[in-house]
Write a protein that binds this DNA or RNA. Sequence first.
DNA 1: TCGACATACTTTGATATCGAAATGATAGCA
DNA 2: TGCTATCATTTCGATATCAAAGTATGTCGA
Lengths: 151, 151
Amino acid sequence: MSTRYRGTQDEVRALSALITVMRASEALVASLQRELAGKGLTASQFGILDVLLHIGPICQGELAGKLLRSGGSVTSVVSGLEKRGLVARRRDGSDKRYVTVSLTEKGRKAIGGLFPEHARTVARQFAALTAPEQDELRRLCRKLGRSVSAA
Amino acid sequence: MSTRYRGTQDEVRALSALITVMRASEALVASLQRELAGKGLTASQFGILDVLLHIGPICQGELAGKLLRSGGSVTSVVSGLEKRGLVARRRDGSDKRYVTVSLTEKGRKAIGGLFPEHARTVARQFAALTAPEQDELRRLCRKLGRSVSAA
DNA sequence: TCGACATACTTTGATATCGAAATGATAGCA
DNA sequence: TGCTATCATTTCGATATCAAAGTATGTCGA
């Protein structure tokens, strides 16, 4: 991850860009995790509650797809949320292989109360960039992410 | 993490930027991890070997600082690398609290052989962006990362 | 010198994550 | 109807990660 590598110009530029993208992303995550820790939630738990709040009941496989996580990981985090009474699991469709996860009232209150503050925090984090800069960052990351995922 | 949130414009823009930055970063990491898994190394192990290769022997605390990881995490990963004979630990300075980690010959060969391919992979990942775009991405992420870390 | 504080590392307990194997359910087809 | 392949989820083993507690070492002031 260091730039002290005698590669081609393209390699040095790419390695250098990689480091800053990763550092920015890790700084964002670390900052959000610290904030969530105070509320008794991990980032993974928040991610699942967030999807359930904004998209509604959804099966675990789709949850894994949206969060870019393995199915096993989702099973484990959902189990934790279920134990705490924040989400409910049901196998009620015609296809009994699917498990539908939904927010309980307790879960809805928890994430509903937290999200506005989360949004303010994120806006504060990105306030270092102007609006056009944020849009440009999004454009570049989308292009990069799509290409990497497709490869 | 969804954009279906009725917040202010600033909040929506920031949340939207956050998602794409995280997705791009996670796609990059996932892709690199898959490549490394074939070589029998995890991303964390590679990160430590990389620092040792390009910076030289260094104590664990500094390693943790450079990798943005907790001290406990570094202890654990270094222990694994030590067991595999890729790095060596020494308490040889005047201050016996510091543990200096360095590459063994075996470790140097391992990371030295892998790094050029890693550099090519990263260059390929970023080839979706032009050189100026990569530089701009770096500028934006540096600005963002610095601000978030400082907060 | 001695005690109090500081620093570097290690250990511990909890959660997250992956990939692979195991389980349970469904669908296609003869 | 059965057999088989596929699919969604769960379980398992390994590693990573953090925070907090614990250990060893070092520093500084009285």
